[in-house]
Design a protein around this nucleic acid. Structure first.
Lengths: 181, 181
DNA sequence: CGCAATTCGTTGATTACTCAACAAATCAAT
DNA sequence: ATTGATTTGTTGAGTAATCAACGAATTGCG
């Protein structure tokens, strides 16, 4: 992998951060490219150097978070649910502004559905209906059940200002998850 | 004044911030140009684009703060001491990392003497020994007295983690100042 | 509707930054 | 004192970002 120019990284980070901030302040529709450029302290043209428009920018941001989560889902296959859930919760907390605006604000429903879809695929890998407590169960039902539960809990946690620390959340959620899958 | 390129501002800000941070962590002598570049997330060569070496960089930083203070000393001539001192204290607080490392750390004595010299000049403008309570006083004595007192109090305030808010400090110090000059 | 004002997306010329490489200077340690 | 390793300051080629300017598209308001 050829390492990318420092300037590219910095510009993109500033631009992405700017959009998230602005989305936490006003509606996505009301945000102009100039707004983003001002907030990122970047020339307006620079945004077009990396993104087609603000929709493309938002897509890339969402895609990146999904990818990040996907990556440490892989590297966490040998951990138990609680430990790997701690990592997830801390990731949510570390990107609080993104996830809270994305899940809490109305209108950003697209990300929620992406997020849910991603979790459905992840849980599919873990469910085994050939033996154990889930013999005679239905895979789709379990997966939908558990993914929706998980996303809903995360949503609630973020909407309510993260009332419990990541580890506490992970222990509770991890315990519940282990009862199902 | 032709407005400067955004990139210049950003690079210089990052570099200056990097040095201040590093100085609060280790001795100035132990800081390399590469350290600064790494912290500022800037290529090493970029530093030489703006500064001769780390000494020049530190000089420019100190000079800039002195200039800033000088500027809002001018614009505050019609305010009373308390109001203008509020501005000063808030400036100190806003640049806490700089002033605390510069005044608190041993070895950075050069800035203290510059800071004192600057204040001596400023107070000279305010002292009037031709009439009022300071008739029959000595200008040098008053100025030295008041400037050293002021610098010492600021030093103490910063060294002790700003135990009182800027306005409270300003009221106390402003009151004392008005008794003298 | 019609007009004014933004915003958009693109262009080209210029500039600052990046990166790798270099020799010289400085440092550390035996 | 001699070696080996960092650090320094500089170079040149390449690249990304800046800025001003443009017509076209959208928006907002009387």
């Amino acid at each position: 992998m050829p390492k990318v120019d420092r300037r590219i990284t910095k510009s993109q980070e500033a631009i992405k951060k700017a959009l998230i901030e602005l989305m936490s302040e006003k509606s996505f529709d009301d945000i102009t490219i100039q707004d983003i450029a001002d907030r990122a302290n970047v020339n307006r043209g620079t945004i077009y150097l990396h993104y087609l428009d603000k929709f493309d920018l938002l897509d890339k941001i969402m895609e990146e978070h999904i990818n990040n989560m996907s990556n440490f889902c892989e590297s966490a296959t040998e951990m138990d649910y609680i430990e790997s859930t701690v990592h997830c919760m801390e990731y949510f907390k570390g990107n609080y502004l993104f996830f809270s605006t994305m899940l809490a604000s109305e209108g950003a429903q697209y990300f929620r559905s992406q997020f849910l879809k991603f979790n459905i695929e992840e849980f599919k890998k873990d469910v085994d209906i050939t033996k154990g407590k889930n013999a005679d169960q239905n895979e789709d039902v379990i997966v939908q059940f558990v993914a929706n539960a998980y996303v809903g809990v995360v949503e609630w946690w973020l909407k309510n200002g993260m009332p419990y620390p990541p580890r506490a959340m992970a222990e509770k959620v991890g315990d519940l998850l282990e009862r199902i899958v």
